[in-house]
Design a protein around this nucleic acid. Structure first.
Length: 427
RNA sequence: GUGGGUGUAGCUCAGAAGGUCAGAGCACCAGGUUGUGGCCCUGGGGGUCGAGGGUUCGAAUCCCUUCACUCACCCCA
């Protein structure tokens, strides 16, 4: 394939055949998000690099090695968004949205970019369905997000998804927990794997989900996040659990989940599927009570999540739930060149009335045009040839039965209008 | 960034130890009498066997390099 340009590594085309599933996912997501009171917000793909460095955290993998960063023509450093939250908050602060309405719920659907080695469920351009609730510390926010996720996933026919939650504590209790971990691991450090020794410096909590057996052994008896939560954080988690129970949302508390972004506080959660390979989270999110203030906004708590659309779509496809294009309502055949212009006219009339109608713009024999009509699973075919034009009528063929009838041209438009009516009633 | 696997027509793949090995199925296009789809039959288009180099009389087949894809690690959606 030398000489032919291929897509950039990690960037996927979504072709007809698969795109219908994406459309269905997004349509349902929008519907549910709107039902739950979220408003769409659209933000730029490109932001100043500093925004992500400050929000996600300088020492995170995303900022250190995964961002698409470059200088634009006026020499400012810009970055293709690796996640949506930072940009949404930037817009919220920049436009002073919190002044007119301090409590807001947003959603945003679109592509994100991270420069990573691609693998199953992970691409350099990927898509997220993102939702944020800004301006309330109430645990009902947390519960509402999870409730919405349940509704959404159920609506897609996905069961077997595991909702896992955890609490990372807050400014007042997290430092003491980190200290407890560090002192626990201090004399065991030499027995940890190389990666874990590095984690010890950067994000000690992450050692908990190391897969090396020896590391797991050394963690026996280690302090647990949940034991070190301060009173308010403990109350928050307990209250969330009460709400989840009353809404009958199944969940598990998993003290091992940690998130890769620095800004999370208190509640964090993931939605896990066992059918996704190594990248098994379809959705991840959490509370970030200090971030808005850190970005120069008011001191306002918030929480959000992001669904990985590629992963969601792959679950649907593997579950045999792909959508296909609806069949054609009408296919118009011009038997020979002399009927083409009349046929073309009726094709457009049909479309203006709202019928999904096609013809074969390459021409070809009657046989080949009918073959095409069949391939497009057209319900009806309108056949116009010299004979029909002379008699001012059209041949109408029903493809399932093969039966044909003649319709006078002066009655055809009314006939088409009836079909449109019938289609409306089917829905 | 690190490791494993794979690279032959649009797709899924055959091509045992180098010499009709450039193929099949599907897809696509066209025919199977005079204006008619699906099934069936016939025919056709399409590949520098990922790329470059080497060994050899001769390589898709062996060796080296490279690129791409893929899975996993790291990390995340």
């Amino acid at each position: 394939m030398e000489g032919r340009i291929q897509a950039v590594r990690g960037m996927k085309d979504i072709l007809p055949g698969e795109v219908e599933t994406w459309q269905a996912v997004e349509a349902l997501a929008r519907k549910i998000l709107e039902i739950y009171g979220f408003s769409e917000i659209r933000i730029p793909l490109l932001e100043r690099t500093e925004l992500f460095a400050r929000s996600i955290g300088e020492a995170t993998d995303i900022v250190e090695k995964e961002m698409y960063t470059f200088r634009d023509r006026s020499d400012i450093s810009v970055t293709l968004r690796p996640e949506a939250t930072a940009g949404i908050l930037r817009a919220y602060i920049q436009h002073g949205l919190y002044r007119t309405q301090p409590f807001q719920k947003f959603y945003c659907i679109g592509p994100m970019f991270r420069y990573e080695r691609p693998q199953k469920g992970r691409y350099r351009q990927f898509h997220q369905i993102d939702a944020e609730i800004l301006g309330s510390p109430d645990p009902r926010c947390d519960a509402e997000l999870l409730a919405m996720l349940r509704t959404l996933f159920e609506g897609m026919g996905l069961r077997e998804l595991d909702f896992q939650i955890n609490s990372l504590g807050c400014r007042s209790c997290r430092p003491s927990f980190k200290e407890a971990i560090l002192s626990f691991l201090r004399d065991r450090e030499t027995r940890l794997c190389e990666d874990c020794r590095r984690r010890l410096q950067i994000n000690p909590l992450r050692i908990f989900d190391c897969k090396v057996p020896q590391c797991q052994e050394n963690l026996r008896g280690a302090p647990q996040t949940l034991e070190h939560l301060c009173g308010p954080c403990r109350d928050h988690l307990e209250s969330l659990e009460r709400h989840l129970n009353s809404l009958e949302i199944p969940y598990t508390v998993n003290s091992l989940i940690v998130r890769g972004l620095d800004y999370y506080t208190r509640t964090i959660f993931e939605v896990i599927s066992s059918d996704l390979g190594a990248q098994n989270a379809v959705c991840g999110g959490g509370r970030y009570d200090n971030l808005i203030e850190e970005l120069g906004g008011p001191d306002m708590p918030a929480i959000g999540f992001a669904i990985g659309e590629e992963r969601l779509v792959s679950l649907l496809l593997e579950g045999g739930r792909q959508r296909s294009r609806p069949p054609l309502d009408l296919f118009v055949v011009a038997v020979d060149a002399r009927a083409e212009s009349e046929a073309f006219l009726w094709l457009d009339r049909a479309r203006r009335l709202g019928l999904r109608a096609e013809t074969d713009l390459r021409g070809g024999s009657l046989k080949s045009q009918l073959r095409r009509a069949h391939k497009l699973s057209a319900r009806r075919v309108l056949i116009l040839g010299e004979r029909e034009l002379h008699q001012r009528r059209a041949l109408l063929k029903a493809m399932d039965s093969g039966e044909q009838e003649e319709v006078p041209l002066d009655r055809l438009e009314a006939q088409m209008a009836e079909w449109v009516q019938g289609l409306r009633e089917e829905k």
